[in-house]
Every structure is written in structure tokens, then in C-alpha cells.
Design a protein around this nucleic acid. Structure first.
Ligand code: MN
Ligand code: MN
Ligand code: MN
Ligand code: MN
Lengths: 220, 220
DNA sequence: CGCGCTATTTTGATTAGTCAAAATAAATCT
DNA sequence: AGATTTATTTTGACTAATCAAAATAGCGCG
């Protein structure tokens, strides 16, 4: 059985390889896991010995099919747990990430499947992050962000890709959660500012950086 | 923060000191935790340095008030998790112990309290084990067992004190769960046998050893 | 081509938790 | 009391995971 440390390494490699060509540099991995680079190198070599990753010295690391399977299961547990905590226990979506970080390693497959059924087999978690299916399929559709989408068209928020408590709290406050409707009224590249118009209420000003962390799709 | 190892040591010391004069011998602790005696000695000395236990060399170990508080919280988590798994996720009462053994270390106090509320502040878990209150109070009433109670009187099962899957499966099969009504029709010390009569259906024969693991109270 | 910057790897130590086996203390039995 | 058995403690060694700091490999650049 993989230790929680191993599970975390694999999960982070999976997440980081989404935003790259598949090869994750050691530095990025170390930063993401909050360890020093030497530690990541050592661990990755051990994971390679176990057949969970392939290590290209001085270039980076990628998951093997077996490692990917483990990582997907951990991610599935993480996101289903978050969904449970928000939908059933009514916890704040800003605090569930830290909880799930621990619980993802403590949940058996039996509990996982019961939770999945209880929640009605959801495909996204409270932040809009896709939940891998039992078979390891995960929606990887590419969405526009509030920083890149067309102006003045009806939009629907599909995902908030910043897990930090502060950002989530701010988003919550302004009704910026998955499913919410809005338009981007204008964008000022020079000032780095975006103005949003929700269906009702005041316009919402947002930095371009923040806008880039909210994914949207065209919506009625 | 206490590691899961530390939490397990404290919880086992708590449980073992219920069935003794409060001083738990190293041998018993080691057996209970499935480690070799030297390991228990080493760990207990470390726990003593942290002020969580008091160690009487060559005699045994007891919890300090701080250690007891930690142990009670872990036990509360364990039993509330078991209750959740059975009552909400509809898992089998024979399998939840192993699950809770892991989850008890991964649940935050925030989740603990939400679970408690969701379940309606239960005072016993699916096996009838008492759940310590948020303040660390735990019912410690002493009950008779099916091996020691009076004959031919209406009884109510209050607790099944054998966590093994086999025993719980057997008990389930025969309706021997907390809340169930029955009588002890006779007891044969020589043969080591007890005969139970449920309200309906066939009499149930049971060994004295097994009978001693089912706690009962006089019941309508 | 050679120099220097940066990312990575290596080396040597450390911590938590464990076991095997030897040493010791305590209890029990002649 | 002295010898024997049993429980506990000590010692030495090991594994997983980590860090600090030194060594190295690649690069980009003049
Ligand atoms: Mn984690
Ligand atoms: Mn999420
Ligand atoms: Mn445990
Ligand atoms: Mn129980």
C-alpha cells in the first residue's frame, strides 16, 4: 500500500503534468509539495524503482500508467470528500481543501464508493474541479477564463482554480461560484482590470490575475 | 500535533486501563498495539517526556490528564465515524472498525462536530460502545453479560464487546445487536453453554465465552 | 569556445518508529 | 535463601522521509 507521502507525490505530479508537456521538473514538484529539491529527487528515484513514475535525470518526471491510476484514485477521493463536506456537512468551500488533503489518504475504496453513491455520482466538486470516474476518466475540457473570454456575452462560471482560503472567501462573497451567470463588460489591459456584471446587483471589479483563475463557458 | 502513532498509543492505554487498576502493563500494551515489548517501552518513555503519560518502570503506564483528553477525543472520533459509516453510508457493522481505525486520525475537530450534529449527538456507536462527549465524559456504567445475568428475565442487549469481523457477523445473523430483546433460558456451566430465547424464532445456543462478550440490561 | 548562472543531484545528518536479541529486574518456586 | 521463570528494558540496527550544504550538469551568452 502506498503511504500518504507517496500518494501526495503522485497526485502532485498528476496535477502539475496537466499544465506542461507531461514532464514535470523537479523544482516545480518540490515547490508544490513544499520540500527542498533534493528531497523530491530522492523520493522520485524511489518511486521510479517502484514503477510508479519514470524519471528523466535533469529533465523531470512523468507518471507510469500504474502511478497514474493511483494518482487518479487519490484525486477522486479528494474531490468526492470535498463534495461531501460541502453538500452534506454544509462546510464552507474555503476550508474543505485542507480537510480533504488528510482524508484522501484515510478513505478506503469501499467508503469511496458509498460516498459516491450518496452524493449521486457527481462529476465536479464544489470548486468545479472535475472528479475522475471510478475507471480513471477525467473531464479535461479546456475553458476560457474571465481574463480571456469574449466580452458582453452571457457566461456561466464552471470552475474556480484557486484553492486558497482568501480567494475562495472573496469569490463566495461576490457570488462567483460554479453555475453563476454573468458577463464581462469590459477589460482594461493597461490597468490590469476586468469588470463583471452579475444578473443583479453592482458590477464587480477584478484584477486580470484573479480573473484568470475563474473558468467560464458560454451560458444562456 | 500528535501523530497517528501517538494517538493510537494513547487510545489503547485508555481502553486497557478501563479493564485494570489504571496501570497498564507494557506487555498488554505491546500486544494490543501489535508491536514488540521493547518498542512499547521506548514509545512510552517518549510519551512520558511529552507529559502525555506517567511511566512506572517495570510496573506500567497510565495517562496524564492531558493524555487522557487526547485519547478521549480520538475515541470520540472513532466511534462517531463508526456511527456515521453504519447509519449514513449503510456499511456493515463488522467492517467499520477497520475503517474508523484510519479515519479517527484524519478527521479535524470541525468535521467531528459537524458529524456529531448530523447524527443527532449519539451517545453510543453501532456496537453499543459509549461515545465520549465533547467535554470528555463517557458513560462507564457496568453491565451484566449473557454469561452472568439472571435467568429467564426479559433483557435488552446494550453492547457487543467483540470487534472481530467473525463475531459481529455471527451476532448480526442471530439478531444479537444493541436494542434486541431476549431471555437466557438456561446455562450449563459444565458444558460451557448458554441458551437464548429471542422474542420470535428458534432458541440460540452460545458458548459461555461468547456470551461473556454481550452486555445486557433488564429490559421490558 | 569558455564562463557563469540555474536547476538538479549527491552526500551526510536527523527524526520517528520499528525489530531482534541481549541484559536486567522482579516474581515464583523449590 | 537460592535458582528459575517471566516481564521489561536496553542496545544496536534498520527504514521512510526529510533538510542543509556541497558537487555537478546544462544551458545561454559573449
Ligand atoms: Mn494529501
Ligand atoms: Mn476542489
Ligand atoms: Mn487508529
Ligand atoms: Mn465500536
Amino acid at each position: 500500500m502506498a503511504s500518504s507521502t507517496v500518494e501526495n507525490y503522485l497526485k502532485h505530479i498528476l496535477l502539475l503534468s496537466e499544465t506542461a508537456d507531461g514532464l514535470v521538473p523537479m523544482g516545480a514538484l518540490a515547490t508544490s509539495l513544499d520540500v527542498v529539491p533534493g528531497t523530491a529527487t530522492t523520493m522520485v528515484k524511489a518511486l521510479a524503482d517502484e514503477g510508479l513514475v519514470a524519471h528523466r535525470p535533469r529533465q523531470g518526471v512523468r507518471l507510469t500508467p500504474e502511478g497514474r491510476q493511483v494518482a487518479l484514485t487519490v484525486l477522486r477521493k479528494h474531490r468526492l470528500v470535498e463534495t461531501f463536506l460541502v453538500n452534506v456537512l454544509k462546510m464552507d468551500w474555503a476550508e474543505v481543501h485542507a480537510e480533504a488533503e488528510q482524508l484522501e489518504h484515510a478513505i478506503s475504496d469501499a467508503v469511496l464508493n458509498r460516498l459516491d453513491a450518496l452524493l449521486g455520482h457527481p462529476t465536479t466538486d464544489p470548486h468545479g474541479d472535475p472528479i475522475p470516474s471510478r475507471l480513471g476518466k477525467m473531464d479535461s475540457q479546456v475553458y476560457a477564463t474571465l481574463a480571456t473570454c469574449v466580452l458582453d456575452r452571457p457566461l456561466r462560471i464552471v470552475r474556480v482554480t484557486d484553492q486558497s482560503e482568501e480567494f475562495l472567501q472573496f469569490a463566495e462573497q461576490n457570488g462567483l461560484r460554479p453555475g453563476a451567470r454573468l458577463r464581462v463588460v469590459d477589460r482594461n489591459l493597461a490597468a490590469g482590470l476586468v469588470n463583471l456584471r452579475p444578473p443583479t446587483g453592482d458590477p464587480i471589479p477584478l484584477s486580470l490575475a484573479a480573473a484568470g483563475r475563474i473558468l467560464v463557458a458560454p451560458g444562456k
